[in-house]
C-alpha cells in the first residue's frame, strides 16, 4: 500500500492528536499531562484543516492553545508546589479499572458501529464551499443569530461570574 503525501500527513496529524490524549490519561505528572493536552489541541486544529474548516482550525488555535492551555498552566502553578510535581496527577485504581473496562466496552461497540455503517458516498466535497469563513459568518448571523446572542450573553455572564467566584474569600 503506497501512501500519498497528503495521507501521510493525515496519519501524522491523527497520531499527534491521539497519542498525547493517551498520555493525558496515563501520566502521573500534571505538567506532562498539560503539555500533552496542548499537542492534542494542536492535532485537532490540524484535523480541522483536513476537514476544510479553516476558520474552526484558527479558532481552535486561538481559543484552546492561546486560552485554555494557558489557563491550565496557571491553574497548576497557582495550586501546587513544584517539587512534588511527579505524583500530582495520579489515578484512583479503584475507579480506573472498572472505568477502563466500561470505556473499552463502549469504544468497542462504537468503533464496530462506525465500521459497519454504510456511510453515504464519502468525500463528496462539492457541498462545502472552498472558503468557509463567509458562509459560516452568514449562518451565525442569520439562522443561528439567536443562539449566537445567547452565547454572547453567556460569555458575559461567565466573565462576571468567574470574577465573582474567584475573588470571594470564603472564611
Amino acid at each position: 500500500m503506497t501512501l500519498e503525501l497528503r495521507e501521510m500527513v493525515f496519519i501524522a496529524t491523527a497520531l499527534l492528536t491521539t497519542l498525547p490524549a493517551l498520555l493525558v490519561v496515563f501520566s502521573r505528572n500534571i505538567l506532562y499531562s498539560a503539555f500533552a493536552l496542548f499537542f492534542t489541541f494542536l492535532g485537532t486544529s490540524g484535523l480541522y484543516f483536513f476537514l476544510g474548516a479553516e476558520f474552526l482550525a484558527i479558532t481552535q488555535v486561538v481559543v484552546y492553545i492561546g486560552g485554555v492551555s494557558v489557563i491550565l498552566l496557571f491553574a497548576i502553578l497557582l495550586t501546587r508546589d513544584i517539587d512534588e510535581i511527579k505524583k500530582t496527577n495520579t489515578m484512583s485504581l479503584g475507579r480506573a479499572v472498572p472505568g477502563g473496562v466500561a470505556v473499552l466496552a463502549i469504544s468497542a461497540v462504537f468503533i464496530y458501529a462506525i465500521g459497519e455503517t454504510k456511510w453515504a458516498a464519502s468525500g463528496d466535497e462539492t457541498g462545502v464551499p472552498a472558503l468557509t469563513v463567509k458562509p459560516l459568518g452568514d449562518l451565525l448571523l442569520n439562522k443561528y443569530l439567536f443562539a449566537f446572542e445567547v452565547v454572547s450573553v453567556l460569555l458575559l455572564a461567565v466573565l462576571i461570574g468567574s470574577l465573582v467566584i474567584a475573588r470571594r474569600s470564603v472564611k
Partner: peptide, 12 residues
C-alpha cells in the same frame, strides 16, 4: 463512574 458503568452496560 456509576453512571458510566450503567451507560456502558446499556450500550453493550
Amino acid at each position: 463512574l456509576v453512571l458510566l458503568l450503567a451507560v456502558a452496560g446499556g450500550i453493550v
